[in-house]
């Protein structure tokens, strides 16, 4: 049965990778173009006027945040659009009639989201090399933080998809929650620039921990303690994983 579950997991991940690579002009190309514009406008044009941030040139400071931003949005949107699309077209029934355990369904979709998050993150990293010399302070931190972040936001996308009843519902969270949290999560600035109260408010934003942990992996600087960042990411993953699993077990949004 373990082997059968492994085959089922691989099948879901392969199907998901096939899906986002088949529609690459919608999934891979737009983030590459958007991030290039960020690098040109904020890094090249405005950056030199800002000067240093956290002891680094502004371009170097925003690169980790922008890579992380693309990983977050793509991991999230891959799972939310794919799983909701499955519900909408009733293809989810293909999975529900088969003997695939719910945790394998969840891991499969998360695997697909992570694959797209990493693929886009890699492409944005390549683009960034055209604007700056990327240094790596701690490779292990870079890889683990980017993978864990992709896992976390894939889970977020999954929960959004389970509750979504129409296409509007899958864009509300990314537009009104995810984007503001990302922009306010220290992608473009160090929270040390903020007044004390707003620094404290920023600490409840989970994206701040991921962006800073990733920045630490690349540049060796962070607004927050790296151990706390890992703790927060793992805690959120555990909460969202078990919540997603309970939704699947109860059949919320997928079974009558």
């Amino acid at each position: 049965m373990l082997n059968a579950n492994w085959v089922a997991f691989q099948t879901i991940v392969i199907k998901e990778v096939r899906r986002f690579t088949r529609i690459w002009p919608q999934t891979i190309l737009p983030p590459a173009i958007t991030m290039t514009l960020y690098f040109v406008i904020f890094g090249n044009l405005i950056g030199p006027r800002i000067g240093e941030m956290g002891g680094y040139a502004y371009m170097d400071f925003i690169v980790p945040g922008l890579i992380m931003m693309s990983v977050i949005t793509n991991a999230y949107s891959n799972v939310v659009s794919s799983f909701f699309g499955m519900k909408f077209q009733h293809c989810i029934e293909e999975l529900l009639v088969a003997p695939v355990p719910n945790y394998i369904i969840l891991l499969g979709y998360v695997g697909g989201g992570v694959a797209r998050g990493l693929a886009v993150g890699f492409i944005v990293t390549l683009v960034s090399l055209g604007f700056t010399d990327l240094q790596i302070h701690h490779l292990g931190v870079v890889i683990s933080v980017v993978v864990l972040t992709a896992v976390l936001f894939s889970l977020g996308g999954f929960i959004n998809a389970v509750y979504a009843n129409k296409f509007d519902d899958i864009s509300i969270v990314p537009t009104f929650v995810l984007t503001p949290l990302t922009y306010l999560g220290g992608v473009f600035y160090s929270i040390t620039l903020l007044p004390g109260f707003w620094q404290d408010v920023s600490l409840i934003n989970p994206i701040l921990y991921m962006v800073n942990a990733f920045r630490y992996g690349l540049l060796g600087v962070s607004d927050i303690n790296i151990g706390v960042a890992y703790g927060m990411i793992l805690l959120f993953i555990a909460i969202l994983f078990f919540y997603s699993l309970s939704l699947l077990n109860r059949g919320v949004g997928i079974r009558n």
Binding site: N3, A4, V7, T11, H90, C91, E94
Partner: peptide, 25 residues
């Protein structure tokens, strides 16, 4: 089922092979 419930954008062969994969084949 009564209604078509496969991904209309996937290839015919992939739809059938994917379903077999769900059964651990």
């Amino acid at each position: 089922p009564q209604e078509f419930n496969f991904n209309q954008f996937e290839k015919v062969f992939d739809i059938v092979v994917t379903q077999a994969g769900y059964y651990g084949i």
